[in-house]
């Protein structure tokens, strides 16, 4: 594997996380529990989609041959999409939306902080911009974790359920394969071992303060890095890519 290939793959992964989670949040437009929260979720969706574009543009530039960010988004089949499975989990209810955002944003914050010191200048640039957004996403989700944890019996029960259901998707966030190793040695990729050591106590502490039982660290789902997903992803793509695939000659 050349450094160039690894970096291309790395950008796709970062981009796919942002793209797919952003898409999930975009689905919530006009479905917020109240108007202000509706706008808040859309803002996060916009941050993530904008960031996906930056990662994919970088990947497209690395690939060359006239590739574009949109080409990577709208013409890649499901087995070549590499987001973490957590990001594609559905908007079951508001508790799932917040739990997913908390678990991912807390991870993403450490990841982006690390990337701010990467040896790759373009990643540093993207990470510096994205970090500001992610800090806000995390603050927004954390506030809700307390409101739901300490609000009513129902909110506590729903959030606990969401945390229990989504926890098995968190192990994958810290998986390292050849791509990661290669780029870690080159001083480009984030160090997921260190991030895990930061992420775990932060999340566990917050859950405890918000009155939740700690979800158990048993079986962890895996597959995203290899393009093996839950059944949800195919449906997301079939909507997302529908126009481009139905009218391959058209530009929009």
């Amino acid at each position: 594997m050349t450094k160039q290939d690894a970096l291309f793959q790395y950008c796709l992964r970062l981009g796919d996380d942002a793209l797919i989670l952003g898409h999930r949040l975009a689905e919530l437009c006009s479905r917020g529990p109240f108007l202000e929260e509706d706008l808040a979720q859309t803002n996060i969706a916009l941050d993530l989609t904008g960031r996906a574009q930056l990662y994919f543009q970088y990947a497209a530039d690395l690939e060359g041959r006239g590739q574009t960010a949109d080409g990577l988004v709208y013409r890649r089949p499901e087995r070549q999409i590499y987001n973490h499975l957590l990001c594609e989990q559905p908007n079951t209810d508001f508790a799932y939306v917040i739990a997913r955002q908390l678990l991912f944003s807390a991870f993403d914050r450490f990841l982006l902080e690390d990337l701010c010191t990467s040896k790759d200048e373009r990643l540093v640039e993207i990470a510096a911009k994205a970090l500001k957004e992610t800090r806000y996403h995390l603050a927004h989700a954390s506030d809700w974790v307390y409101r739901l944890g300490l609000g009513t019996g129902e909110s506590h029960r729903r959030m606990q359920q969401a945390l229990n259901d989504l926890w098995p998707y968190t192990g994958e966030l810290f998986e390292i394969d050849d791509v990661g190793l290669h780029l870690l040695e080159a001083g480009i990729a984030a160090d997921l071992h260190t991030i895990r050591a930061l992420w775990t106590p932060e999340i566990r502490q917050m859950l405890q303060k918000a009155g939740f039982e700690q979800p158990a660290d048993d079986y962890m789902h895996t597959g995203g890095l290899k393009g093996i997903h839950s059944e949800h992803l195919g449906h997301m793509l079939s909507e997302m890519q529908y126009l481009v695939r139905a009218y391959p000659e058209a530009t929009w």
Binding site: F34, E36, L39, A40, N43, A139, H140, D143, R147
Partner: peptide, 20 residues
């Protein structure tokens, strides 16, 4: 104006509604 249950939420909502 915005609707919100607490100060933090009011600030965040104000940010998302009036400073986009």
């Amino acid at each position: 104006s915005v609707h919100a249950s607490d100060k933090q939420m009011a600030l965040q909502n104000a940010r998302d509604v009036y400073t986009r």
